[in-house]
């Protein structure tokens, strides 16, 4: 058991489990910073997982498949924004609707495209490749972790850095944060809050769709019904616990990924699986507890108590 935990395979498993959550957590963080809770991550990921398979099969390579999937993700983000911002729908209800449509809609679409209902086995799709970095892959232990990951995992790490720079070093990022902080104040200095929130939700959709693409084109190599399996919601929690900052969200995602990988590995032992399956959720609870405790302490400190 300990041997397995110290093997590169375990760390690879952590990164695999983290990648989809990480994309979705980034998606949640940018929406939250703009003042909107994007509950639709789950549905966007599920749709993207299916469209990733369809588009990569249609275009014959994963890259155009990924790009088109990102367009779909952006469209769903726009769709959500349209309902929330133009039609003044409750953001949670609109998102729940999208998630419900995704559950049934993906199966319907899959049926229309391939005649299957359970999984997209008959669609010859293309997955993102694993990237072997020359020289680095020769380093013992570390090389096996740093090199040889799926391209989407590297993109996820890249996305964290880009999102951090975007949110904190660009004017648009500043505007997004300003709108989220105080909409009226932002508008008083001439920022169109609606435009900014549109941009944030579309961006959020694009990021979530990359996570969805990884599910069926990297993690698995096919789409299976309901395969997002709650990862969108876990990502919401990760983002919230990480203070909705890209770096914070990614660290918490990594924690969740590690908890999931640990739980998977522990099933090799004789410990009852019911207990083991609690680990990811227990981690979430403990994490949330620590988070709100430290928040409380900080507030008390600020209040001078």
């Amino acid at each position: 058991m300990l041997e397995s935990l110290l093997s590169p395979e375990f760390f690879n498993a952590i990164l695999r489990a983290t990648t989809p959550i990480l994309f979705a957590a980034l998606a949640s963080s940018v929406a939250s910073k703009a003042g909107i809770t994007n509950m639709a991550l789950e549905g966007i990921m599920l749709f993207s997982a299916l469209f990733g398979v369809i588009f990569s099969a249609m275009t014959g390579n994963f890259f155009t498949g990924l790009l088109l999937t990102m367009v779909i993700g952006g469209l769903i983000g726009w769709f959500l924004a349209f309902f929330v911002l133009n039609l003044k729908t409750d953001e949670i209800l609109a998102a729940v609707a999208i998630n419900l449509i995704a559950t049934g809609g993906t199966v319907l679409l899959m049926l229309a495209v391939s005649g299957d209902r359970g999984s997209s086995t008959s669609i010859a799709s293309f997955s993102a490749p694993r990237i072997v970095i020359p020289l680095i892959d020769k380093i013992p232990f570390l090389g096996e972790i740093i090199s040889g990951q799926n391209l989407m995992t590297y993109l996820a790490i890249l996305a964290v850095i880009i999102m951090h720079l975007f949110m904190y070093k660009t004017p648009l990022g500043l505007k997004i944060r300003a709108v989220g902080e105080n909409k009226n104040a932002a508008e008083s200095v001439g920022i169109s809050s609606r435009k900014i929130q549109y941009i944030a939700l579309i961006l959020s959709g694009v990021l979530a769709s990359m996570g969805g693409f990884f599910m069926s084109g990297g993690y698995m190599n096919m789409f299976t019904k309901d395969m997002s399996a709650g990862r969108g919601y876990i990502a919401l929690a990760a983002s919230a616990m990480g203070g909705n900052t890209p770096i914070g969200a990614s660290l918490v995602s990594l924690l969740f990924g590690a908890a999931q990988a640990l739980a998977n590995m522990m099933q090799l032992t004789d410990i009852p699986h019911e207990l083991i399956q609690m680990i990811p959720y227990l981690t979430t609870l403990i994490g949330l507890g620590v988070y709100s405790y430290s928040n409380m302490k900080r507030r008390q400190k600020l209040a001078g108590k």
Binding site: S4, A13, S119, M220, K225, M227, Q260, A261
Partner: peptide, 16 residues
């Protein structure tokens, strides 16, 4: 439904 977790669990078995 969680095919990705199914894959992870199976990978852990195959690797051991």
């Amino acid at each position: 439904v969680n095919s990705a977790t199914g894959k992870e669990l199976a990978l852990a078995q195959y690797q051991n």
